[in-house]
């Protein structure tokens, strides 16, 4: 294997202790990177060997947990999937855009959690069927109608990429709408009428201008833009009373 190459990183630093100034700054680190290093490896190297005060979130290192999303050279990405060798140097790593920063690369996800809950992302039944009558059956076609939207790992890259989010922080956003849509499309669900007020409400789908950025950056190929815009079509037809709302 070849010698590790020294790569310059510019990492965003912010600490709440110095909050009066309200400023973050960029700090430069030089990291020896083997050819197979991803940005997360480099951040861990900085934390372990250069500067233990650096804070960042990560867990699985394999694109499943969704916790290591950051701005890498200005684009939201999972740092565990961003190979150092593919990036332009110096590599600029910042916290996800459109979220308040708690510290360094760690963002505040409270508002996102509230938005997720607001779409009631669970199966709603008017009357729950007793288990003795067996399971709810679903055909492969019925499964396909929502399956891709259930692959979301809540990494929030779509929120950092969304141009609407910049100006309208209360927009419930791509991931939450895609999840609400996923349950609306589920043949077992009867909660469409309950979700309508949120999905088609003041902070819902109508804020989206279909820039498609959410789908461009999604690491799981969920295509939230498709979900948001299909939800627009469905709720517009429901608004016209052409289509009924499930569970109304």
């Amino acid at each position: 294997m070849s010698e590790p190459r020294i790569v310059k990183f510019e990492v965003f630093r912010y600490s709440p202790e110095g909050a009066e100034t309200g400023e973050g700054k960029w700090q430069t680190y030089e990291v020896p990177c083997p050819d197979d290093y991803v940005v997360l490896d480099a951040l861990n190297h900085i934390k372990d060997y250069i500067d233990p005060t650096l804070s960042h979130r990560w867990s699985c290192r394999m694109g499943v947990c969704g916790s290591c999303g950051m701005m890498v050279n200005g684009t939201p990405n999972l740092t565990c999937k961003s190979f150092v060798r593919d990036l332009e140097h110096p590599i600029r790593v910042g916290p996800l855009a459109n979220f308040p920063v708690v510290r360094d690369l760690v963002v505040e996800l409270e508002s996102f959690m509230d938005k997720l809950k607001s779409v009631k992302p669970w199966i709603i039944r008017k009357v729950e069927k007793d288990v003795k009558y067996g399971e709810y059956l679903q055909t492969p076609d019925e499964l396909d109608s929502y399956r891709q939207f259930s692959m979301c790992i809540n990494c929030c890259l779509c929120y950092a990429a969304c141009p609407v989010m910049i100006n309208e922080p209360d927009f419930i956003g791509p991931a939450a709408i895609a999840l609400g849509f996923r349950y609306n499309q589920d043949s077992r669900d009867e909660g469409e009428a309950e979700r309508y007020a949120v999905l088609a409400g003041e902070h819902g789908v109508w804020n989206c201008s279909y820039a498609n950025e959410c789908s461009e950056v999604c690491p799981k190929h969920v295509d939230p833009a498709a979900a948001v815009n299909r939800e627009k079509l469905v709720s517009a037809l429901q608004w016209l009373h052409i289509l009924p709302k499930k569970g109304a």
Partner: peptide, 15 residues
């Protein structure tokens, strides 16, 4: 919001 809101945060900036 939750307990984390007592921590001072840096507002997300509009690039």
């Amino acid at each position: 919001m939750g307990s984390a809101s007592s921590t001072p945060t840096l507002a997300s900036r509009v690039p």
